[in-house]
């Protein structure tokens, strides 16, 4: 148990954050809370990729003249870091867009509660 935690514990914690985000998106009634949960979910996925990029005994992916470029085991994999860098910025843009839409909904319907919105849209 301890051994498997030391090997996979980081993934499990990351999945816990993922589940918290999913819970918020499914269960919360308020749309602002749903957006916050979306952002938590996204953070968990970013964390997953960063964990996957980690190598035992490796350093940051910045070229060091003393180590040289031949030993790939001396550097953490730079590819997931790059992809997550772009994912973070896209995440900020989507959250901004979502909040703009929420402001618009609030202006039109006067509420951000899911149930109340459904009633108002029926009538």
């Amino acid at each position: 148990m301890t051994e498997s935690f030391s090997q996979y514990g980081a993934y499990w914690m990351c999945f816990l954050v993922l589940t918290v985000g999913l819970y918020g998106m499914l269960m919360k009634r308020d749309y602002v809370k749903k957006v916050i949960a979306l952002s938590i979910f996204q953070a968990a996925i970013i964390l997953f990729f960063v964990i996957a990029a980690y190598k035992e005994g490796a350093g940051v992916p910045i070229f060091d003249k003393e180590i040289g470029a031949e030993t790939a085991a001396a550097y953490i994999n730079p590819l997931p870091h790059t992809l997550m860098l772009t994912a973070i910025v896209v995440g900020v843009a989507t959250v901004g867009m979502a909040l703009a839409l929420l402001i618009r909904i609030r202006r039109g319907f006067g509420t951000l509660d899911e149930d109340k919105l459904k009633e108002k849209m029926k009538s």
Binding site: S4, Q7, Y8, G9, A10, Y11, W12, F15, L16, L18, T19, L22, Y23, L26, I51, A52, A53, Y54, K55, E56, G57, A58, A72, A73, N77, P80
Partner: peptide
């Protein structure tokens, strides 16, 4: 449902390479 979701993810993680394993498919040449 959420507990099941978490359980499936944890089960799936046992098929991943361990954290920090330099021989993981992602890190091989």
């Amino acid at each position: 449902l959420l507990a099941a979701f978490f359980g499936v993810l944890v089960w799936a993680s046992s098929h991943l390479a361990p954290v920090g394993d330099p021989d993981a498919p992602l890190h091989r040449e």
